[in-house]
Amino acid sequence: MADILQILILGLALGGVIALMGSGLSLVFGVMRIVNLAHPSLIIGGAYVTYWAFKMTGVDPIVMLPVASLIMAAIGVLLYRLMFERETKSAKYSEMTVLLTFALAMMVEGLLGGLFTNTQRVVSPDYATDAFFVGDIFIPKGQLYAGIVSLTIITALSLFLKYSRLGYAIRATTQNREAAELLGVNVNFICILAFAIGIGLAGAAGSLVSFVFSFFPAKHWEWVAMLMSVVVLGGMGSILGTVVAALMLSVIAAFVGTWIGATWSTLTFFLALFLILLVRPQGLFGEKPEMA
């Protein structure tokens, strides 16, 4: 029983971080219908910001999180204005954004590789290697803190979307872009804002990831399928769905990793993605796609 509880706790703590990693991707898809394949590479960008801040000044990654988030959000604004704004009226918008984000992922990887080499990095604050013990159960402090911070950020995001005026505008644009525009929402501004928030969330996730996982520029390829499976299972565009899916898959992966073997753990996400697309493409909280 203690073993099961142990695995469950580890899975949930990691699931919280994965939920934050996926929430920005989900938000950007929900508002702009952009499947941002570069999202994981931008998470790595946030991780490097945190890594160098820690290495040079010793600043704690959790304290650095808002700064990394703001830096990545500003990069998000630039990227949107340079790459996506002009595509919004294109008849091939969806195809173009997939290709553009794929190219962006390659460029970010190349840039980070050129600047920082492909050496594995990890931020090591004291708590990253420490743990709480409750009887026979240990809870790694790093994962626990990262999970708590992630779920706090997602809660704040949900409250912002639910109650603020801009949150209303973002939700409205997600559900019916034309109607939002007709009711006075400056949809282009909302897209820039949502993209900035999405990439800002990638930055925040990067700060947490920096001490939970080791990372290097090409690591994003591993995360892309993991995050896609989370976002697809949750229902593309649903933040709540992303959280539920991340926690679910993460717990399942933790059990698979313990009982079957660590190498099979990652397969959980790939298999989930395959099965969801086959059985329920709209995911848990998404809308059923209309037949052509």
Binding site: Y168, A179, L183, G184
Partner: peptide
């Protein structure tokens, strides 16, 4: 031009955006 996943009250709020 309604927002299907918003409540009636939220739709009205959007009307006065």
């Amino acid at each position: 031009a309604l927002f299907p996943k918003m409540t009636v009250r939220e739709n009205l709020r959007m009307g006065g955006f």
